[in-house]
């Protein structure tokens, strides 16, 4: 765990303590479980986003993909009678294909990630609304999928299974990002794509893979969100979710220029965001201020982090100069 992550963890604990003191209901098991569930849902989304951001890209279509794939998933199992063990992988594949398409446009046709995924945001939202004719996709009365519901919305020992899923995914992705050859390539490309290319890395493929990972994880969270809300109105479902994901990554120490950030950081970022949501509810702050609180905290967080970086850089420089002078006189 880096110092940055540790700082974020302390911030989470301090905010939690303050909220708990003002409103002890914060610590009620039901509240914690609910918050953990939301952390699980948004966390999976944020990890996907993190893989794209580390390459210096961005994925803005996440919210619309959550809506589109959610609508499709509910439609497949509720009205088309597809078995969910078939529908689930199918949705994941669809998510992967969306990611592949984005990655292809960005790496092969050299379009900017912002533009490609912004168009995706608009297109998928439109398709989702068209698919249901702007109606709400949901389950019929009495329709039950016990195993699926247990896996997505259920709890084990009081812990939401969505949160457990996040932990499992986080561990796997931590290994991928921080220990694997692929992860090293991601960092290298994010730091300096040209230099990575000149080192013989097939940068196009690596970047494309990052978008595919993002697509698959987004698809997975789309299923979780669908099973959590159980009814989806495609006009509003998943709106702004891309921003939650990006915010979590930024709070977690990711640089939008790429090449920086840790998996623990993005998880902690998600935790802090959900804690803030919870805080707004529990402290009786008008919920209309919800976004304002979030924006304010992120801004302060990034500002502190940036200033700290400047301070550290200056100290390093001074140290290097001192060492250099000592070295020069010794020669």
């Amino acid at each position: 765990m880096s110092k940055k992550d540790l700082g974020l963890l302390i911030l989470i604990l301090v905010v939690g303590a303050v909220v708990a003191i003002i409103n002890p209901r914060f610590l009620l098991p039901i509240n914690l479980a609910n918050t953990a569930n939301l952390i699980g849902l948004f966390g999976i989304l944020a990890i996907g986003q993190a893989f794209v951001i580390i390459t210096g890209g961005i994925e803005l279509s996440v919210g619309s993909v959550v809506a589109l794939l959610g609508v499709l998933f509910v439609d497949f199992i509720a009205t088309r009678d597809m078995a969910w063990p078939v529908a689930l992988p199918l949705i994941l594949v669809l998510g992967g294909m969306i990611g592949l398409a984005h990655g292809w446009l960005i790496t092969r046709l050299k379009l900017q990630p912002f533009v490609v995924t912004l168009c995706g945001l608009l297109i998928y939202r439109g398709v989702a609304r068209f698919y249901t004719a702007d109606g709400t996709a949901g389950f019929a009365f009495g329709q039950n999928f016990p195993e699926l519901e247990f896996l997505t919305a259920g709890r084990s020992y009081g812990v939401p299974n969505s949160f457990i899923a996040l932990i499992v995914i986080a561990i796997v992705m931590w290994v991928v990002l921080h220990r694997s050859v692929f992860g090293r390539y991601l960092y290298a490309i994010g730091k300096n794509e040209e230099a990575a290319k000149y080192s013989g890395i097939r940068t196009g493929r690596v970047v494309m893979a990052a978008y595919v990972i993002c697509g698959v994880l987004t698809a997975l969270s789309a299923i979780y969100f669908a099973m959590y809300t159980r009814s989806i109105s495609p006009a509003s479902h998943g709106q702004f979710y891309e921003l939650y994901a990006i915010a979590a990554a930024v709070l977690g120490g990711f640089s939008l220029r790429g090449g920086e950030g840790s998996l623990i950081g993005v998880i902690l970022g998600t935790v802090l965001l959900q804690e803030l949501q919870n805080l707004v509810n529990l402290l009786g702050i008008p919920s209309s201020l919800n976004f304002a609180v979030m924006g304010g905290v992120i801004l302060i967080g990034v500002l502190v982090d940036q200033q700290w970086g400047v301070y550290r850089e200056r100290r390093l420089m001074l140290e290097a100069t001192r060492k250099g002078m000592a070295g020069a006189s010794a020669e």
Partner: peptide, 24 residues
């Protein structure tokens, strides 16, 4: 890559040879 260490720069073009089962 200025931000990577000497060792990481040297291994970058030949990373699979410095990895066991995809792990560096």
């Amino acid at each position: 890559l200025l931000d990577l260490s000497i060792a990481q720069n040297i291994s970058l073009p030949n990373l699979p040879a410095h990895a066991r089962r995809f792990l560096v």
